[in-house]
């Protein structure tokens, strides 16, 4: 499954974002880098359908979903701070997409536990988010995104609140999962080290992509 963005225009107050073309293929991680206010998170928010003033199109496997309601776009989000629901256990959090789809507990449980096991969280399944560390919570959020079965994943600075060691570990986890599951990932980050696990990087400035290429070729002195 791939994500294609064509001539996307987003307006939030006086800020305007324009993306002429952006493609994320299956098993590919494309990074969005740029200074604060450059429009990185705005792009993800617009893709999710949370900004009304959006024109243009984005397609998933050729289907234009830019006019869909947010709940029908089939995009898995992972936010900067844990977006795990505080009133649900880790297991129920991870099962959330399947519960919403009406899948019975008997059916979702093995799948959820398998993903929790894979991410080293099985022993924490019955804990609530306030009893998890930052790294555990973010791994939980990743597990939920993967359990959903959605093939397009949007990561909005998912590890920026974690310490360097945890970030390194989680980058590797994401890299492996993307390749195994053939996910198309759009990853917003400030961190150039995050960029090193990405396949391609786009640098945004004032709402426009001003550079794109391989992470190793980023002109650091010009943009950072």
């Amino acid at each position: 499954m791939s994500l294609n963005i064509n001539s996307l225009d987003v307006k939030v107050g006086s800020f305007a974002l324009h993306i002429e073309e952006l493609h994320v293929g299956p098993g590919e991680i494309v990074g969005l880098l740029g200074k604060s206010g450059s429009g990185k998170s705005t792009l993800l928010t617009a893709l999710g359908g949370f900004i009304a003033n959006t024109k243009g199109e984005y397609r998933i496997d050729g289907e234009d979903r830019s006019a869909f309601f947010p709940e029908r776009r089939r995009l898995a989000y992972v936010f900067q701070k844990s977006s795990l629901f505080p009133h649900l256990t880790l297991e129920r959090n991870v099962a959330f997409p399947m519960e919403i789809a009406g899948i019975s507990r008997a059916k979702w449980r093995p799948r959820v536990r398998a993903w929790l096991d894979r991410l080293g969280l099985l022993g924490l399944a019955q804990r609530k988010p306030d009893a998890l560390s930052g790294g555990e919570a973010q791994r939980g959020a990743l597990a939920r995104a993967l359990v959903s079965g959605y093939k397009v994943v949007l990561l909005d600075e998912p590890f920026s609140a974690l310490d360097p060691k945890l970030r390194r570990d989680l980058r590797v986890v994401v890299r492996e999962l993307v390749h195994e599951e053939k996910l198309s990932v759009l990853w917003v980050t400030h961190d150039l080290e995050d960029a090193m696990v990405m396949d391609r990087v786009c640098i945004l400035e004032k709402g426009k992509i001003v550079w794109s290429g391989k992470p190793a070729e980023i002109p650091r002195e010009k943009y950072f």
């Binding site: 947010p70 709940e71 936010f79 701070k81 977006s83 649900l88 959330f96 997409p97 919403i100 789809a101």
Partner: peptide, 27 residues
């Protein structure tokens, strides 16, 4: 109720009614 929770729920397919009953009211 954090906007990120609402958006996460919606992105995973929750309709506004489900967002209310499963995310907002419990919170």
């Amino acid at each position: 109720v954090p906007q990120s929770h609402v958006r996460t729920a919606q992105s995973f397919g929750a309709m506004p009614f489900q967002v209310m009953t499963r995310v907002e009211l419990p919170a």
